[in-house]
Amino acid sequence: MQTNSIYIKKKHPSDAVLTGLIYLCALISIFIVVGIIVYVFVRGVGQIDWTFLTTVKSSKNGTYGIAGNLLNTLYIIIITLLIATPLGVGAAIYLNEYAKPGRLVRAIEFTTETLSGIPSIIFGMFGMVFFGTTLGLGYSILTGALTLTLLILPLITRNTQEALRTVPDSYRSGALGIGATKWYMIRTILLPSAMPGIITGVILAIGRIVGESAALIFTAGSGYFLPKSIGGAFSKILESGGTLTIEMYLRMTNAEYDAAFGIAVVLLVIVLFINALTKFLTKRFDVTRLDERRKKKSK
């Protein structure tokens, strides 16, 4: 009798065990995500009402809202992006369009890689000493924003580079061929074509900023007041301002868990929204897919 026939399936008990393990691990991963999100929502949603979102912590008025922190988060997002986006996009344009392969490019790519690997607490320490003390900005929203600029720079550079790479070379040669100068070509052809990718990078960066805490606690501080005048809205940039994550951390250390869960829900809502938005954008503007769609249509 032949037992080695390939038509008779041999039983492999170890296969069953490994398959079981694969399913188990996948289940664990899914359970962790869903568990955390559901748990936070269940404990935190009840905390959120209009007063929680529109008041600031005040023992005089008996309120414990997070309006100031929401505003601080917005300030830090806007200022960081105003500085980091041009820098990151510029760096990507340099790497993709201007630089010739060599030492400098390798150095820039290596340092960009390094920046994305440095833990945020190190950025926080550096920001505190360099922007806070050496440049004399102290604990302020500006110090925090400058620190976060370093943190999100690699993210924006990477995404812009990716986007520039998907722009077909024929666009470049076409523009240059009819006599456009390089900068004109970049401005009118490359940047608009790469815009969806750049925007995706910016949105991912917003997600990073919203969730960041270790880089901010020693740079932006923990102020939570709303500006009282229009002048105050500008000078606020140089004042201490804690973001949502910092406020959440402080409430946790004070054992105000209900408020902490409330803030956690706000954070998760922002994160989920950003996630959905980037998904939508990458699907909508994926250049390769657009081409495929066009091909299908023409058939």
Binding site: S29, I37, S213, A214, Y249
Partner: peptide, 20 residues
């Protein structure tokens, strides 16, 4: 279905992990 769910893990802020 599963991949987008797992991708959410990367977006959850570290303070939220701390709280949970």
């Amino acid at each position: 279905i599963v991949k987008p769910i797992i991708e959410l893990l990367a977006g959850i802020p570290s303070v939220v992990y701390g709280l949970v």
